[in-house]
């Protein structure tokens, strides 16, 4: 009955026992004295002398350092990045959403609004309490105004706080995901390190010069 199968299996488990762990600690990682000193930016002896309490803690294995999570640039996080200057309030995203959780109310900015001019946006709410982050709204956006975000730490105690309002979208740091936005990958944009300040950089098209724009909008009509 008992043959070589069981010992061979134990060799495999032994190999796995001594290999480095693959588990990623989040949000903090326990470090020893060396890691804590490196985090504080000094060498271990300095750290021992200058911060005896912290180094005792580190030797006891209680010191922690925050960990950066590995994410791919296309990660669909649970927030959105929005460039109001690019948005014309066409509501393509609201129409394309499978769950209908995007609410848009817009009014013409003035009475004789021309083609190409953007509407005044009154309400732009995304109820991410019901959102499944499929990214179809981002795919539908013809002007690259709405992007998926990369942050995922957005848990709240109250459901109502899960609604992202217009103001929150305006003020949020612009860290768009490269999901359905190949221009970010071409530029080598890293959403985890940098932000996009200028809305021109978020577009998929080359920015046109004034003459080209005038030719398109004025001379050809």
């Amino acid at each position: 009955m008992i043959g070589l199968g069981l010992p061979r299996g134990f060799v495999v488990t032994l190999k796995n026992f001594i290999r480095p762990p693959v588990t990623e600690q989040y949000p903090d990682r326990h470090v020893g004295l060396l890691g804590a000193a490196k985090e504080a930016g000094m060498n271990p002896f300095q750290f021992l002398v200058k911060k005896p309490a912290d180094s005792l803690k580190a030797i006891a294995g209680l010191a922690t350092v925050p960990v950066a999570v590995k994410q791919s640039p296309r990660f669909r996080g649970n927030e959105f990045t929005y460039f109001e200057d690019r948005c014309t309030a066409c509501a393509s995203c609201a129409k394309y959403c499978p769950l209908g959780i995007i609410e848009i109310v817009s009014v013409p900015g003035k009475i004789d609004a021309q083609e190409g001019e953007s509407y005044k946006l009154e309400v732009f709410d995304i109820d991410i309490g019901r959102c499944m982050f499929c990214g179809l709204c981002v795919e539908a956006c013809p002007y690259d105004a709405l992007h998926m975000g990369t942050n995922f730490e957005r848990s709240k105690y109250v459901r109502d706080e899960l609604v992202i309002t217009k103001e929150e979208l305006f003020d949020a740091p612009k860290r768009p995901s490269a999901f359905y936005r190949p221009q970010f990958e071409e530029k080598g944009f890293d959403p985890f390190k940098e932000t996009i300040e200028d809305f021109h950089d978020a577009g998929r098209h080359e920015q046109k010069t004034y003459d080209e724009l005038k030719k398109k909008w004025v001379d050809e009509r």
Partner: peptide, 25 residues
Amino acid sequence: FEMLCGARITNSYLRPGGVFMDAPD
């Protein structure tokens, strides 16, 4: 899968006629 489409389990990667985005480098 996260590299390909940004999600791990609920992928929604395919579209009628192919996929929505080419694989990154």
